[in-house]
Simulated assay, not measured.
Amino acid sequence: MHWRTYLHYFLLLVEASVFSLKLGILVYAANMVFVLTYNSPCSDEEALKTIHKLCLDALNKKAFGNLCLPLCESLDLQYSFCTNGGEKDVFFMSWDNSITPSPAQLVMKRTRFTDQIVNNLYSTKRDDFVNVFLTELKTLVNRHTKSKYIGNMKDLLQLFWTIEEDKHLKHENVDFLRNVIGLAFQSEYMFMLLHPIGNIAPSLRGSCGQFYFMEHVPLRLSDVAITWSSQVSIAVKLLDLVQQMEDAYFERLHMCDVKADNFGLDDNNHLKLLDIDSLHFHSALVRKMSDQHCLHDRDCQVWNCRGLCNMTSQKCRPLRFNSNLQNVCEEIFLGADSYDGLLSNPPSSVGDDLREILHSCVVSNHISDVDQDFTSQEMKIIDLLKTILKKKTTSSIR
C-alpha cells in the first residue's frame, strides 16, 4: 500500500480520536452540570437566602399566598432544615399556629427554575397576556381533572385557594398571574389542589409565591414494619391503595415509581404516597409513552411503568405493560434493591401460600391499553392476598 494511503488512514484515525475526545468532554461537562445542579447537598445558608428573597417579593407584592404572612411577617412559620430534593428545593418547616396544639411540621417545596420558565413563556409586552394565561391554565388543569372549569378570573380564584386574594390587587397584575401559573406547572401541587379527598397523598396546606407547603409525613415503611402484624396491616393498606387508584378518580391513576421509600404513614396511621410527581393519569401516561422513539421495550419505560416498542415504526405503543398491583408485589412485598421486602419473610403457617400468590402477581400479564376497570385477574389476586394475610398468625420480629 502506498505511503500516501497510510497517511490518509492515519489522519482519519486522528480526526476520529479528536472527535471522540470532544464528545467525551461534552458528555462529562453535561454530567457535571447535572450533578452540580441536582445532586449537590442542600445548604442551610442557601435555603435561608431563598426564603429571604421570597419574603422580599412578598413584602413588595410580587409574591402572593395564604402562607406568606406567617412565613414573612408574623414569623410563625420557621425554617428547620433542608434536604436534597433533586430538581426541587425542599425545606422542612415548623408552623406554630392556633389550629394544632403543637407546631405543625410542614414541607416547603418548589421545582427549581419554574420562575425562569414562566418568564420565558409570558412576556409583559403582550396585550393578550391574560387570555394567553387563562388558556394555558385550562390546559394544565385538564391534565389532572375533567371536573373543573376555568372561564374567568373568578373561577381561577375559587380553585386556587392557596392564593390569598388581595382586594386592592388587580387580577391582571403580571406578578400575580405568574404566581398562579408557576404553581400550576408543578404537578405535585396540582394533584393535591385538585384531589384533596382520598387520603392517598399528603395534604396541601398553602403556598407563598411559587413555593407550596404540604403535610410532613414522618414515618417510612421501614420505620413501622417491625412485627408480622404490622407488616400485614401495611400490606392491606397498600392493596386498598391499589384499588383506589383504579376507581377513585376520573380515570385510572398509575404509580410509576413504586418503592418502599415513596410510602409513609401520617400521625393518624394513614398510608400516604410521597412521590406525587410519579403519578400519571392513564391518558397522560399513554400519550407520554406514544411520543417516545424506541429500539427496545426498555426505551418505553416511565420509571417502573413498563411499555412496549413497535419495532416496525420504532415508536412506543400507547399502553402500559404492567400494573400498579404488579409493581407493589414485586418492589415492596417481595423487595427490590436494598429493601428486604415487606412480605418476604412470612410465618411458616402462611409462607407457601403467600409466596405462590405473590409469584402469580409478579409474572401476570397486565397490559393496560384502555382505561378499563380492574381486571378479574387482579381482583382475584388482591382477594387471595387479603385472605391469606388475615389468617391468624403469630407475631414475629424480622
Rank of each mutant, 00 (worst) to 15 (best):
S283D: 12
M289W: 09
L77F: 12
Q377A: 09
L69Q: 15
K259M: 04
Q116R: 08
P202E: 06
N324T: 12
A29W: 05
L265P: 07
T114I: 13
Y149I: 04
C72S: 07
E330V: 01
F211Q: 14
N269I: 03
V27H: 05
D291C: 06
K53T: 13
V174Q: 03
E172C: 08
N39Y: 13
F213L: 11
E165H: 09
D223C: 02
T124M: 02
V27G: 01
D261L: 11
K380P: 00
L11R: 08
T124W: 00
I200T: 11
V180P: 05
L140D: 01
L384D: 15
Q372E: 11
K62C: 05
M153Y: 12
L194K: 07
F185D: 00
Q116W: 05
A225V: 04
C256S: 06
L7C: 14
L319Q: 11
S222F: 09
L156Q: 12
L219C: 03
G24Y: 11
Y6F: 09
N269G: 03
T111I: 15
G264H: 05
T139C: 01
S74E: 14
T393A: 01
G24L: 14
V286K: 02
I381D: 12
K154L: 00
T145M: 09
I200F: 08
I382H: 13
D128N: 12
I51L: 13
G182R: 08
F374T: 12
Q210F: 05
N152W: 03
S94K: 13
V224W: 07
L358C: 04
K167C: 06
